[in-house]
């Protein structure tokens, strides 16, 4: 088994609708029952981000995300899956449930 990060990508700060929330709950419950679930969470928007760079002599704090983009990360799942095909199937259902794009990336 391998782990994958399923990133939820969006271009709007609108919160999940009640229908989307309900669908996400159903999807989460099924992932737990099927043994795929590791962790999940929703994030604040890019405006709530702060970047710290402590590679130099002193830490530099910057307001905002490390890169401004039209689309951004708004939530994620970490899942256990046998291979990419299995992870893509989970992402397909997850994208439908939360009604947003999902990016799949393997943990090394």
């Amino acid at each position: 088994m391998a782990q994958y990060l399923l990133s939820v990508i969006t271009d709007s700060l609108d919160l999940a609708t009640p229908e989307e929330t309900a669908a996400i709950d159903v999807f989460n419950d099924r992932m737990i029952a099927d043994g795929h679930w590791v962790f999940a969470g929703g994030l604040g928007g890019p405006d709530t981000a702060t970047v710290i760079d402590n590679r130099g002599e002193r830490a530099v704090v910057t307001d905002g995300p490390f890169v401004e983009t039209k689309e951004f990360l708004i939530g994620f799942w970490i899942v256990e899956a046998a291979d990419l095909d299995a992870a893509l199937r989970l992402a397909t259902d997850g994208s439908k449930a939360c009604n947003r794009k999902v990016e799949v990336r393997p943990f090394l």
């Binding site: 391998a2 046998a82 291979d83 095909d85 990336r105 393997p106």
Partner: peptide, 14 residues
Amino acid sequence: RAARIPYRVPAGED
């Protein structure tokens, strides 16, 4: 290799 694209013939509905 990294994303584990499986080495198999897809089954059934796929």
